[in-house]
Structure formats: structure tokens, C-alpha cells
Design a protein around this nucleic acid. Structure first.
Lengths: 341, 341
DNA sequence: CTGAAAGCGCTTACAG
DNA sequence: CTGAAAGCGCTTACAG
């Protein structure tokens, strides 16, 4: 590949002039510019980024650290990030950690070595000390979906509202024995949803029945099993609020196997609004999270951090969730039902 | 951040020795090595990749070009790629093109500039001349899922078998009016599935009815509409074979809205085996594609190309598909049904 | 086994 | 507005 000397030679100028012409920041004679541009064209010259990076230390690449791309909530967020990154001339490196600290450290090491200009994490937990350390070093980082208090920039959904609005919706449909199939209490996002759920119950004067609440479920299998236990426990839920659509699918599977019809016999509310939620049978009502926007905002924030000389005060951005009403929740205002099974 | 000179100073040796110690390829006195390693530890030294890259031209990064991460078939493939890449100390950059040539060219330019060592494409079409050009230049590239004849390395699924086995399965269940909701004939993978479907029909002595075949559908909406037209056309299908699970979801939605029960009234067979296929109602029978393995193999191949000095002969690797029988296909050997609706 | 020196391809003060 | 030169941080033939 041609280098800057080749271009300079062909254009009859010095390498400095080629560099200046290309950077566009420093005035260059119009005629000179034309000669240079032509030589660039002819040789299909592309500056060597290693050489550039060696000077200015920028790679125009950011890194994304997530547990697993196969988790259906991430693709939309990824799209948000890459779209914004592209707009700034940036490119994104993707890393899966499977929630493993060692894998994560490996990636952080190798990415810093590869000099990404900044990092977005979706893997923050209470033991994420390496993230805190990066922050201390002044390295640009933004958290996404999960956060770590107010000390690090983060873009998350309003999880309290999600739990609150979801439960309130079910209450408005006349349900009183609302089960909650929740995730791990080790993550603030699930604690918040739980808190929102409790708040809604409290406001409605419904006494919380601990037997209706299951924490620590993960994928659809665990939700499937939890539902089985819930049904045989005598807790008698009239609606089930799962804190992910994937879990809601597990719930529905368990219900169907027990010949319980959704929503005639029992209602189900999901969380996330994954791509296929509207195609479920019945179409799943759910608390929609703005994953694409979360990705966008996180990337925008990271771009700001990368560009700013001084370290701006961290911002915790909380995006609103949105209730999406489909057919999986019945109750008082339920109209359909004739022959839909 | 500390550089090699700092380390050399602290260890009381020359930068050359530090470099040699770290590379491990050249013998270094044991004692010297220890001093160096300690200095490296103390200063938390990490070699600057830009400087390294400037010398050897390797970035230890590969690029992946796909239409859209949000398409449910890609996450698994991405995981396959990143897992293999990680094993080789490589990192992966992700780019979405939305099937747009300009976006793709932009990314290819910017990635080459950022000196990725190689590229995996899932976007090849007949007009992908830039891909051919890269190949001519000797730049390491591998195609995935789609291919471009035998001139470029590619890892794909056996699409002919997929169409053939799927149709044969439906025929074995006694169906004779099997509709095919296919993708664009501009892509070889859909031409192959169609060819397989035709072959199975031919073998079974079933005359192909063109009214039962719809090409050019894409997402679930188009499949949904195509199904509507199919049902009102008088073509009277007894089974519908969709060439993606997403399309199959659209098909099922259309059937349910017309009060047709799956599989009692009509059977549905999908293609891909996406994550949620088993959670559909009814669980979707489908032709499973080994996306994870496709990603793995593509990455392995790319690593080979990057490492080899000479350009090896291109290999077209075709991975087998697998029929996954669930409840959405009824017919002769169908046993369930009591109360499953 | 080790050091001094050259060079990878840029950018940017410095001088004019 | 333009050129010659220094320097970014490594690696690696060259010499010893």
C-alpha cells in the first residue's frame, strides 16, 4: 500500500504538505491541494492508522462488554451503539464475558492494549472493582442497563417505574394475587422492579404475599420451574408478572402444560418487549425497555467523555419504560376471548 | 502510561532487552529476565499496540460485516466468531450494513484503515464487487451464511438439504399440498432451499403447484401477508414450509387470526431454530441451522488465512442442517392433540 | 546474551 | 503557504 511519501513524490510536494492537505485543518494553497488530492486518488492512499495512533493516541474504536450477545435484549442496544459510533467515525469491538470476571479482565486488558478510546459495560455488579479502577484512571467508560451508583456515567431504564407500572396495570384489571417472577436481587435493576411492584400493591391496599414472589430466576427454564412450584404451592396467583419476556415465555409454557389458558385462566405480563413478543400466542403484554435508545445514549455519552479534556461530572441517565398492552393480560376490561384459543 | 524506556531504566537494561524478554522468542539471561519482569509488574507496563502495529502491521482484530444484529440468526454466529477469536488473542469489530452497499463500502474502507487483519462477510450478493476486489488484493476474507461461488472462502449451511429434508419430512407426514414461503431468489441460499423442496416433491411423485410457492418474502410481516393471500387464493395448502422461523411466526399469526389451528388444521415448519422456537405455541418444528458452528468455522478459517504467507486455495465449507421435530407439524404420525389447544 | 541504531509512517512545532 | 526535522514507542538486523 502507498504511503505518504509516495503521495508526496507523485504530487511533487513534501509529506508535511500531504498530511496538512488531508487533515484539512491547516490552510493549503488551492493548486497544491488539487495536486495532492489527485495523487491520493491515483494511489488510493489511505493513511496508516498505526502511525496516526502513535502520534495522537486515538484509535477511533470503542469497546462494548456484555454478558452474552445471545441474550435477546442486547442486539437492539448494540445497534444503537454502532449507529451512533458510525456517526462519529467510530467502530465498535464486541466482547462477551458470560458474567465471568476473569474473561472480563482479559478483555479489558487486551482492549486497553489495543487502545480503544473508551468502553461501554453492561456487566457491572457490586464486585466490579476493575471498572471503578478504570474510572479512577480517568479512562472514558459508560455503564449501560446496569449501573454502579452515581460515581460512573450510566444509561439505564427506569426500573422502579417498570415494576410499578406493570403491577399497577395488573391491579387495574382487577387482579389481586399478582405473582412476581423476578431476577437476582444482587442486581439493582431487579431490586428496583421489586420495589416498584411493592409500591403499587401498597397504594392499592393489597397485602404483599411473599409466597407470590420468586427472586433469583434467570432464563426461561428457571421461570418455567418457578411457575410450576408457584402453582402447586397453593399461593393461587391470578396473574404473573415476569421481569423479562424470556421468563414470561417459560411461565406461559408451564401454564399451558397444566392446561391453564392465558389470559382466560391466568394473565401474564412480561418485561423487555423483545422482537418476537407480539408474535407469541397470545401476544405478550409487556413493559417495553428502550434498548435501542439506551445504546444510543450510552454511545453519545461515551463520545462526549472521549472528546472532553477535563473529566465531567458523572451523569446517571434514566430512560422511561412503556407499557405495551397485548392479549396476555385479561381481567375486567378484557373483551376478546371468543375462539382465540 | 509507562513505556518501554521506563521499564528499561527501572530494570537497568536496554529497551531492546525488554522487548526481547516480552516477546519470548529470543533467549534472554534468566536473571535479566526476572529484573525486566519485575519492572514490568511494578509499572504495569503494556506495550503500545500502535507502535507494535507500525512495525509488524498486525492489529489482532478482525471485522464482521452483517446486515443487522437484530436479525435473530446472527447473535449465535457472532458468539461463535468471538469465542474463536478470543482463543487466538483476537478481538472482533461489528458492523451493520442494512444491506446497503454504500454503508458497507464505508465500513470496509474504515476498517482497512484501522487495519483489521481480516474480514468476515455475511452480506455477499451478486453485486458484491468490492469483496471480489479485496480477495484479489490478497486481503484475508471469509464469507459466512452466504457465499460467492468457489472463488472465496465461505462457511455456509447445506441449504439444498435443508429444503429437501424439510419437504421430505412434511411428505412423510402425509401432506401433499405443501406451500413454500421462501426468501429472495437473488440469494443462492434460497434458490438451494427451493431446489431441495422441488427435489423432494419430485421423488415423492407430487406435482409442484406454483400457486403454493411464494418467493421474495422477508420479515414476519411479509410472510403474514403472503399467508393471507395463499389462503384466499384457493391453493389450499395442508402444510406451510417457511424458510425462516421469523416467517413461520408470521405464518402462524395469520393462521390463528383465521381460526385455523396448528397443527390440527394446517401444519407449519420453520427454518433456523431460533432461540425461542421451542417456546412458541405450538412449539415450532424447524430445520435447525448450526449458526454458532458456522461462526466458529468462519473465524477458524480466517485465522488460517491471516497466518498463512501464501494464499491457500479457497474452501467452501458446507455444514449439515438438522430437522427438529416439535408440535407444529401434525399429520399421519401425529399423536398429541387432546387438549393441547 | 546484550546494546546502539535504524526505521515503521505519520504529525507538528520550528523556521522561513 | 511550505519544507526539513524531530519524535511518537516499538522491533530487529547489526555488531560485539
Amino acid at each position: 500500500m502507498a504511503n505518504i511519501k509516495d503521495v508526496a513524490l507523485r504530487a511533487g510536494v513534501s509529506p508535511s504538505t500531504v498530511s496538512r492537505t488531508l487533515s484539512g485543518k491547516i490552510p493549503v494553497d488551492k493548486e497544491t491541494k488539487e495536486k495532492v488530492m489527485q495523487a491520493v486518488q491515483e494511489l488510493n492512499y489511505q493513511p496508516n492508522v498505526f502511525a496516526q495512533g502513535l502520534k495522537d493516541g486515538k484509535s477511533k474504536t470503542i469497546g462494548l462488554i456484555i454478558p452474552n450477545v445471545r441474550n435477546l435484549v442486547f442486539p437492539a442496544a448494540i445497534r444503537g451503539i454502532t449507529d451512533v459510533a458510525k456517526h462519529y467515525g467510530y467502530t465498535m469491538v464486541l466482547c462477551n464475558t458470560d458474567e465471568d470476571q476473569e474473561t472480563e479482565s482479559f478483555y479489558v486488558q487486551s482492549l486497553r492494549q489495543r487502545l480503544v478510546d473508551g468502553l461501554i459495560f453492561s456487566t457491572a455488579t457490586e464486585k466490579s472493582e476493575h471498572i471503578l479502577k478504570l474510572r479512577e484512571e480517568g479512562f472514558p467508560i459508560v455503564l449501560m442497563i446496569r449501573h454502579l451508583g452515581g460515581t460512573i456515567d450510566a444509561v439505564i431504564a427506569d426500573n422502579f417505574s417498570g415494576g410499578y407500572e406493570g403491577a399497577k396495570f395488573l391491579l387495574s384489571r382487577g387482579f389481586r394475587r399478582i405473582a412476581l417472577i423476578n431476577g437476582t436481587m444482587g442486581l439493582d435493576l431487579y431490586r428496583q422492579r421489586y420495589a416498584g411492584y411493592k409500591e403499587a400493591l401498597l397504594e392499592a391496599g393489597v397485602v404483599l404475599d411473599d409466597r407470590l414472589v420468586v427472586h433469583e430466576t434467570g432464563d426461561w427454564e428457571t421461570a418455567y420451574e418457578a411457575t410450576g412450584r408457584l402453582l402447586t404451592s397453593g399461593a393461587k396467583p391470578d396473574a404473573i408478572f415476569a421481569t423479562s419476556d424470556t421468563k414470561a415465555l417459560g411461565v406461559m409454557k408451564a401454564l399451558k402444560e397444566r392446561k391453564l389458558k392465558v389470559p382466560e385462566d391466568i394473565s401474564v405480563l412480561g418485561y423487555d418487549d423483545i422482537e418476537t413478543a407480539s408474535l407469541m400466542d397470545p401476544p405478550l403484554s409487556t413493559v417495553a425497555q428502550p434498548f435501542y435508545e439506551i445504546g444510543q445514549r450510552a454511545a453519545e455519552r461515551l463520545m462526549k467523555l472521549i472528546r472532553s479534556k477535563r473529566r465531567p461530572k458523572p451523569v446517571l441517565e434514566k430512560l422511561p419504560v412503556r407499557l405495551v398492552v397485548r392479549d396476555s393480560v385479561g381481567g375486567e376490561s378484557y373483551i376478546g376471548g371468543e375462539g382465540s384459543s
